[in-house]
Design a protein around this nucleic acid. Structure first.
Length: 536
DNA sequence: GTTGAGCGTT
C-alpha cells in the first residue's frame, strides 16, 4: 500500500495517509486526518511553485502516473472563505488584491531595534492597536534574561500585518523595524498564470478565456503579437493555475500544453536591442554614484530634456514632492519620454524609465538584479531601480531578493539620536507577505503584480500617497482613481496608444530604439497585458 | 552593570 505524506501546512510534520489500490487518495481519508481540507498541493522542486493535486469525484490523483505520489510532502488545501461578496463590483485589480489578502496568511514578524526594557507584554500592548496579536515574544539571553533587542510578533489578520509592515513603530521610545524575518524565507508565492503552449493562431483570447474559465475564474489572457504559438492565462486562483500545469488541453481541436508561466532564465537578457525593463516600476531614489555632482539630479534639475540618454541618475530624495512627478502620465511630450521627477509606485508604470529625477524614497538599496544599461558608462552598484512591478520582473526578483532589495526593508540614510531613523517615509512594503505564502508578495510576483496595481491605483499626492500610506491609513484602500493623464498620446509619442491606464502606464519610449535599446512596452487594455516577452 | 546589527534553543 502506498502512503502519501501530508501535512496541514507546508513545513509541518507530515502524516502518512494510505492511498487506494488505484493509487488515488480519497478525500475522505484526507479529511479524516485534516478535517475541513478539500485538496492537496505540493511544492514542485523544479519550478519551486506550489502545484495543486488533481481532484475528481472525491479522489486525489498522484501527480505522476508512473511514480505515483513520489517523495513529496503534500500539504492541505482548505476552502477559502469567500470574502469577495461585496467586491464583485470592484475592479479586477482590487478584487484580486482582496483575493491575495484573503489568501495570504500571517507570518511571524521580526521586530528589530527594541529597547532593552521592552517586554513581551509591552510589545504586545503596542501592537494590539493594529489588531489581534497572536504572539509577542522578546528574544533574550538565556542566562541573563536580558533582551537581545529584538522579538517577534504575529498577528491574527493579514491586514494588521500589512499595516504593521507599512508603518514605523515607536516602542518604548525607540523606533523599531518590523520585517518579515529572513528565516521565513520567501518564495511561497503561487503563480496564478500559466503558459499555454502549442496555440494556433485561430485560438483567440476569448477562446482561451472561455475554455479555461471552466476551471476557475480567468482574470487575464494574453496572446503575444505577433503570433508566437503560445499565450498566457491568468487565473484568480493560483491553485487552479497550478492544477492545470503539465496538462494538455484541447481547444478548438488543438492540443495545447499548459505549463508554468515561469520566465526563462538569463538567456535572452543580454541580447542587443533587447532590454527587458528591469527598471520598470519603482525607482527608489538612491544615493547617486555620480561623484561629479552635476548629475545628482534631485528631480528639479538636470532634466535632460529632449535626449535619449537614459538618464537614470537616481538623485536624492529631495525630489519627492516637486513638480514633475509622473504618475503614468509620463512623457511630457518632450519627444524623449523621459520622466522628469519622481516616479512613485511600482507596478507597470514607467516601464521604460528615463527617470532623471528623484524617484521614490529609498536611499539605500543594494539592489541585485540591476540589469539596466550602463548609464553614462558606469555601473551603478546601487542603482536604486527596483523593478518589482510584476510580470516583467518576476523571474528576476525572487522573494529573498525582494527583501534584499529593500522592498520590505527600510532606509538607512538618516539617523536620529544614534538610532537609525530608517525609512524616510516611514513605510516599508513587505512583499514577502504578498504572495508570501503566508504573508510574504510577489510574487508572488503574480501577486506582486497585483500589488503593483494597487500601487498604481492610489491617488497619489506629492507626499507619497501610495500603497504604503494606504496601508498606513487603513482605509481599506478602494480608491482607484487613476491619475493617468494619457498625455503620452501626442505627436511626440506616435507609438503610444494613450490607452494606458495607470496599471499599464508605460512611459515607454519607442524612440529608445535609436539607442539600440528596445524597451518592451505595451499598453494594451487588459490587465497584466504588459509585454511578457521575457517569458520566453 | 556595557551594546544597537541582527533573524527565532520551541
Amino acid at each position: 500500500m502506498d502512503f502519501v505524506q501530508v501535512s496541514e501546512e507546508e513545513g509541518d510534520e507530515p502524516i502518512e495517509l494510505p492511498a487506494e489500490e488505484d493509487g488515488t487518495l480519497l478525500i475522505s481519508t484526507l479529511q479524516a486526518q485534516f478535517p475541513g481540507s478539500c485538496g492537496l498541493k505540493y511544492r514542485n522542486m523544479d519550478s519551486k511553485a506550489v502545484r495543486g493535486v488533481r481532484s475528481n469525484e472525491g479522489r486525489l490523483f498522484p501527480p505522476n502516473v508512473d511514480s505515483g505520489w513520489g517523495e513529496y510532502v503534500y500539504f492541505c488545501v482548505f476552502p477559502k472563505e469567500n470574502k469577495r461578496k461585496s467586491d464583485d463590483n470592484l475592479e479586477n485589480s482590487t478584487a484580486k488584491t482582496k483575493r491575495i489578502e484573503t489568501r495570504l496568511r500571517c507570518t511571524d514578524l521580526i521586530v528589530l531595534g527594541l529597547a532593552w526594557k521592552t517586554t513581551e507584554d509591552s510589545l504586545r500592548e503596542y501592537f494590539e492597536s493594529y489588531g489581534e496579536v497572536l504572539m509577542a515574544q522578546i528574544k533574550k539571553d538565556v542566562k541573563s534574561g536580558q533582551s537581545k533587542g529584538f522579538g517577534f510578533v504575529r498577528f491574527g489578520s493579514y491586514e494588521a500585518q500589512m499595516r504593521v509592515l507599512a508603518n514605523r513603530h515607536l516602542i518604548d521610545g525607540r523606533w523599531c523595524e518590523v520585517k518579515v524575518p529572513n528565516s521565513k524565507g520567501m518564495g511561497h508565492q503561487v503563480p496564478c498564470k500559466v503558459f499555454v503552449g502549442r496555440c494556433t493562431e485561430d485560438i483567440n483570447s476569448d477562446d482561451l478565456r472561455e475554455y479555461f474559465s471552466k476551471f476557475g475564474e480567468v482574470t487575464d489572457v494574453f496572446i503575444p503579437r505577433p503570433f508566437r504559438a503560445f499565450s498566457f492565462v491568468t487565473f484568480l486562483d493560483p491553485d487552479v493555475a497550478q492544477s492545470l500545469c503539465g496538462e494538455d488541453h484541447i481547444i478548438k481541436g488543438v492540443s495545447v500544453h499548459v505549463s508554468n508561466a515561469a520566465p526563462k532564465a538569463e538567456q535572452n537578457r543580454t541580447h542587443q536591442g533587447q532590454n527587458y525593463n528591469y527598471n520598470s516600476g519603482n525607482n527608489f531614489g538612491m544615493h547617486s554614484y555620480h561623484p561629479q555632482g552635476n548629475h545628482m539630479n534631485s528631480g528639479r534639475s538636470g532634466h535632460h530634456r529632449g535626449n535619449n540618454q537614459h538618464n537614470l541618475h537616481g538623485g536624492d530624495n529631495t525630489a519627492i514632492g516637486n513638480s514633475h512627478s509622473n504618475m503614468g502620465s509620463g512623457g511630457y511630450g518632450m519627444g524623449s519620454n523621459n520622466n522628469y521627477g519622481g516616479n512613485l509606485g511600482g507596478g507597470y508604470t514607467n516601464s521604460s524609465n528615463h527617470n532623471s529625477g528623484g524617484n521614490m524614497n529609498r536611499q539605500d538599496a543594494g539592489i541585485p538584479y540591476n540589469r539596466q544599461n550602463n548609464f553614462h558608462g558606469m555601473n551603478q552598484p546601487h542603482n536604486g531601480n527596483v523593478g518589482n512591478s510584476g510580470w516583467m520582473n518576476r523571474g528576476h526578483l525572487d522573494m529573498p531578493n525582494l527583501q534584499a532589495l529593500g522592498i520590505n526593508s527600510q532606509g538607512s540614510s538618516s539617523s536620529n539620536q544614534g538610532q537609525n531613523m530608517n525609512n524616510p517615509l516611514g513605510v516599508g512594503l513587505n512583499l514577502n507577505s504578498l504572495p508570501m505564502n503566508p504573508a510574504l508578495v510577489a510574487a508572488a510576483l503574480n501577486q506582486w503584480s497585483l500589488l503593483g496595481n494597487q500601487l498604481q491605483n492610489q491617488n497619489q499626492d506629492q507626499q507619497g500617497g501610495n500603497f504604503l500610506s494606504w496601508m498606513a491609513q487603513n482605509n481599506g484602500g478602494h480608491s482607484n482613481s487613476n491619475m493617468n493623464s494619457g498625455s503620452r498620446k501626442g505627436p511626440n509619442n506616435p507609438n503610444n496608444s494613450g490607452s494606458g491606464s495607470m496599471i499599464k502606464g508605460d512611459n515607454s519610449a519607442s524612440n529608445d530604439q535609436q539607442n539600440g535599446n528596445s524597451w518592451s512596452n505595451q499598453s494594451s487594455g487588459s490587465q497584466n497585458s504588459v509585454d511578457k516577452s521575457n517569458f520566453l
